[in-house]
Design a binder for these strands. Sequence first.
DNA 1: ACCGTTTTGTGCACACGTTCACAAACGCGG
DNA 2: CCGCGTTTGTGAACGTGTGCACAAAACGGT
Lengths: 228, 228
Amino acid sequence: MSVALSGAGQRRRGGISEATVARLPVYLRVLTGFAESGVATVSSETLAAAAGVGPAKLRKDLSHLGSYGTRGVGYDVEFLVYQISRALGLTQHYSVVIVGVGNLGHALAGYGGFGTRGFRVAALVDADRARVGEQIAGITVRHVDELEAIIAEHEVSIGVIATPAGAAQDVCDRLVACGVTSVLNFAPVVLSVPDQVDVRKVDLSIELQILAFHEQRKALDPGKERSA
Amino acid sequence: MSVALSGAGQRRRGGISEATVARLPVYLRVLTGFAESGVATVSSETLAAAAGVGPAKLRKDLSHLGSYGTRGVGYDVEFLVYQISRALGLTQHYSVVIVGVGNLGHALAGYGGFGTRGFRVAALVDADRARVGEQIAGITVRHVDELEAIIAEHEVSIGVIATPAGAAQDVCDRLVACGVTSVLNFAPVVLSVPDQVDVRKVDLSIELQILAFHEQRKALDPGKERSA
DNA sequence: ACCGTTTTGTGCACACGTTCACAAACGCGG
DNA sequence: CCGCGTTTGTGAACGTGTGCACAAAACGGT
């Protein structure tokens, strides 16, 4: 059933592994910092240290998107910033809709991370009519009934779900029905979506529980630790 | 309650893989939902479907923490809830301190996920003296200068960093100096910590960029998708 | 008491990700 | 122009995680 993209070359346009894709944004951020400090080139060792990974892993990651970088010298910072941005698709612009204007939705709307790199918050929506019209971070809250219209109007491709758990699946279904193919879910539920839709989950509770596990382990068996 | 040394020896106390640990909280949440609905037993197939994983993976995960579950029947919901809780260390209580009372800190303080499972917010702290004394979700904001005292007083073992990027490493160093060994970082920086300290990172910007990558991929090559 | 049905637990094979180690490439100085 | 130190890119070994397929085990009906 799974059509193997035969191993002729892993270099297809989308041939970057998931693990690598997850690290590229980190490299990008670190590189941006270097660029602002006026650094022109970095070695894999320096960049890897700043990104918190091993040099070999970094080089392999970068090699997956092409042979940028000069032997004996390192990588040109600005050029690499551009290449990673392009590989991640950040040269295009994406419209985002945030559903749910509770504490979390508030925080997300105010988060700087949206504007900085090709993401634009098209709208905030909420089910509570009392909040409609409210201004948050320069964006007016609209009612969730307008969701379909908003998505069509702004060509929204990414939906952020910051609703209570009970409403999340319903909102998700509506987003998907409108053609949204990427969802970032902050609600503590497992969303079910069609195969072609990507869902990423951010779950505070899960993170805490993972930390709790390691805390317990450290308490039981002190002295032989090694973290990522 | 005793250590099971019998059988094929993969059964070490801390011998649960990281990937499994990351999924256990999901199982736990789904199981809690079943318990509240009055369901007494679940099969691996049902539970796996609700958790969004394959049945085999679920069974293997659960097998790593013992042979609970009855062949031909399934798993006793309440018993499994207890066992997973215990494996994750949730039978103990952990005190958490949240540093940074911006939009995000606000949202975190109000998040229900803390109280529900063994986590208690010992304090909110902020560097801005104007916010000190403010009441958020029933907790009084204290100044970051008191951090050391608070940690000692409440035996805080988990620190949550919700500060701007610039302050994060500094706060982290102070937490670690006070003996905190688990950190949940929301600031968009790579924290450097000693080996014995666990750091988990939640980064909205990274998640969006990962979604952007997949959006781009889908736009270039529509029709042959397969998500996790 | 026994047989058939159901479901777990797990050995095995495979795919994926990480790390190591080294040859190929580059700049520089003599 | 050549040799030397430096750094990339990558093949190969290794470890980890995943999925399949099946035997062992429990329950219920007859």
